[in-house]
């Protein structure tokens, strides 16, 4: 078991003929993902690594029975691509694209509220259920199948956390990067809820950063609803105030969204928080031991 993607996921790649789209389509196929089709307007009829290319998502869905898509479309057109995937009725859309205008995402978010489509991202590394399905740009080889869910706002910190877990012999049920943009699809709370409901996930690692209030809301959700242990890390503890640190979301303003505030909120709700990024794996291990489930979560010695 896992959340959102598994071996039954039939994946489309929007922007499959582009540089990134092509490269990562090959990587996803090599990982074992069931990539059933690609979409690039005007390039219908071509193939990429034997995957058929269609002009529109609707056409691709009709021909392949796809239920999810991953987007590698440039920022100018990415919001439109998300809407197209939602309009075609896909269950899950994963948008990797970085640099989409905020107001475009505001419009997308409103549109999605009236549909059944779940969005991951944008500006994210995607999602992986180890051994079954990789939809995105995550390096597959660091992941091991197992029982710990990973959720992060940062792509590379997702890899860092997964790498530390795998090195400790702790596998992952599903790892998901929700993205660094201020307006995004699924947030911490929604993904935590999915992990709580997934019988195969025994514990969760959550990685946040300065800015926004998603981590504080997640802390409240954990206190009220989570029965599974959660370990966390918040990056940006030493970031100077008022300086924008790349992620549009990662800015401290008006004393809100600070690392200290988020760490305090999480600790108050019973979450073990790693002091530094090298201790994410060890902190989760401590949480597993505290909960008496360390042995069930070990995938190999």
């Amino acid at each position: 078991m896992s959340i959102l993607v598994n071996r039954d996921t039939k994946l489309l790649v929007q922007g499959i003929t582009g540089h990134q789209g092509k490269y990562h389509t090959e990587q996803m196929i090599l990982y074992g993902t069931n990539v059933v089709g690609g979409v690039t307007p005007g390039k219908g009829g071509q193939t990429v690594f034997d995957v058929p290319v269609f002009n529109t998502v609707r056409e691709a869905k009709l021909a392949t029975g796809a239920n999810a898509s991953v987007i590698y479309v440039p920022p100018k057109a990415a919001a439109d691509s998300i809407l197209e995937a939602a309009d075609a009725g896909l269950d899950l859309v994963i948008c990797i694209t970085e640099g989409i205008p905020v107001l475009d995402m505001a419009r997308v978010k409103h549109y999605l509220a009236g549909t059944k489509t779940k969005l991951i991202g944008p500006n994210c590394p995607g999602i992986i259920t180890p051994g079954e399905c990789k939809a995105g740009i995550l390096p597959g080889y660091i992941h091991k199948p197992g029982h710990v869910g990973v959720i992060s706002r940062s792509g590379t910190l997702t890899y860092e956390a997964v790498n530390q877990l795998s090195a400790l012999g702790i596998g992952q049920s599903t790892a998901i990067g929700i993205g660094g943009d201020p307006i995004r699809g699924l947030g911490f709370t929604e993904v935590l809820e999915l992990f709580e409901q997934d019988p195969d996930t025994y514990a969760v690692v959550m990685i946040g950063e300065i800015g926004g209030s998603g981590e504080e809301e997640a802390a409240e959700f954990i206190r009220k609803n989570m029965t599974k242990p959660v370990a966390a890390f918040i990056s940006g503890q030493t970031a100077p105030k008022g300086k924008r640190m790349g992620h549009a979301g990662a800015i401290i303003s008006g004393g809100k969204g600070t690392a200290e505030g988020k760490i305090r909120a999480l600790r108050d709700c019973g979450v073990l928080v790693a002091d530094t990024p090298d201790l994410i794996g060890e902190t989760l291990k401590a949480a597993l031991i505290n909960a008496g489930i360390y042995n069930q979560c070990r995938t190999e010695v």
């Binding site: 706002r153 590379t156 950063e209 990056s235 790349g246 990662a250 990024p277």
Partner: peptide, 25 residues
Amino acid sequence: NGAGLAMATMDIIRKFGGYPANFLD
């Protein structure tokens, strides 16, 4: 690479008593 990792890198440099000259993603 990555804003989150770049901030975490600054955090860990501080842990070892150093000071970053920049943030660069």
